[in-house]
């Protein structure tokens, strides 16, 4: 085990170890920081969801806690008006491009977005920022699960599972900007791709984008 390190988060001291990222140190000590894309084993985190911002004493700008390693004596804040505003906007931006029909969603009550909303007191509504209107085709080609891109938050958890855990390489990101999606080679339905239907990706999806057909609401 590596060297023990003490840091302060929100006025409480916690013990963690050298090389750990702030996010994981906090979560392991029951201090909640919103997050979607963080993968503990990933050495170079994506840092793409932009929800895990914290303030570190001595740093001018908010920092993503998934990328920053702990340092002895570090003083971290997970809440402040500035952080809350930034995280709220980030969250609202994600909601603006997320199918909000929660009642029909297999992940209802088991959804990372709902957890964030609850913990931070955000509404699961879009009043300030308008929804982005677009349609995605449902891929229900696999036998036991389906992929609904209208719920995808592009966190990349499924791709990690496919590449690193399952070692298949069936899915990846494609396109750029707003058109960025998780997809197979040549946008083939999953069943026609090299996907082995191991379902590891379904298990890690934090929202209801990849879901088991058996969980589907009527």
């Amino acid at each position: 085990m590596s060297e023990e390190i003490t840091i302060t988060i929100d006025d409480g001291e916690i013990k963690t170890h050298h090389g750990e990222k702030i996010l994981w140190a906090a979560l392991e000590n029951d201090i909640y920081i919103p997050h979607l894309c963080a993968i503990k084993k990933e050495t170079r985190p994506n840092a793409s969801c932009r929800l895990c911002f914290v303030e570190i004493e001595g740093h001018e700008r908010p920092v993503t806690s998934c990328t920053r390693e702990v340092e002895e004596g570090m003083v971290v804040k997970t809440r402040s008006p500035r952080l809350d505003r930034l995280v709220k906007t980030g969250f609202e931006l994600l909601l603006s491009d997320h199918n909000l029909n929660c009642r029909e969603c297999p992940a209802n009550r088991n959804c990372a977005l709902q957890v964030i909303a609850k913990k931070r007191g955000f509404k699961l509504k879009r009043d300030r920022i308008k929804p982005i209107e677009r349609e995605f085709e449902l891929d229900d080609s696999p036998a036991e699960f389906a992929f609904d891109r209208s719920r995808c938050v592009l966190c990349g958890q499924c791709i990690w599972a496919d590449r690193v855990e399952a070692e298949v390489g069936a899915i990846g990101f494609s396109n750029r900007g707003l058109k960025r999606v998780v997809t197979t080679f040549n946008d083939l339905p999953l069943a026609d791709s090299i996907c082995t239907e191991c379902k590891l990706c379904v298990d890690v999806c934090p929202v209801g984008a990849l879901y088991y057909k058996k969980d589907q609401k009527a």
Partner: peptide
């Protein structure tokens, strides 16, 4: 992975 070639091309 072919998916990456496609990703890059798009």
């Amino acid at each position: 992975p072919a998916a990456d070639v496609f990703g890059l091309a798009t």
